[in-house]
Amino acid sequence: MKKIIKLTINGESVEAAVEPNRTLLQFLREDLGLTGTKHGCGLGDCGACTVIMEGRAVNSCLILAIQAHGKEIITIEGLAEGGRLHPIQQAFVDKGAIQCGFCTPGMILSAKALLDRNPKPTEMEIRTAISGNLCRCTGYQKIVEAIESASETIGSEEVS
């Protein structure tokens, strides 16, 4: 039996009827057409489906859409503002941290969840934050550099 859920996605309030066995990932991609969030392994191993729920990075493939009722969710579509890329997205472009791009939304959201809590992370903290996100092009070094660079950009923007 479908149940009504109400949640906030990228700042917009959304109301929908969902089956209990629908995952948050399916709901985002198939019901709302937010296909920036990727479906990788479906088992919580790869991190391609990472979204931010209540300020924390989570695997949307392991959360029921029903469980997201009343929650605030940020997907990759919610980062750019007024056609301008978020500093983390821009850093990924500038540092060549994107190869095939499939892991990128998850990587960026894991990075955002980290920087929101810890604006000046060490390299080890960055590596830990993205340890649940697999990049099969294995471009990890550039991804770490991009996140370091984004943390500097965000820091200097806040000062100025």
Partner: peptide, 9 residues
């Protein structure tokens, strides 16, 4: 345990 996204849940 697991990775950050797993630990958050």
């Amino acid at each position: 345990l697991g990775a950050p996204m797993i630990r958050n849940r």
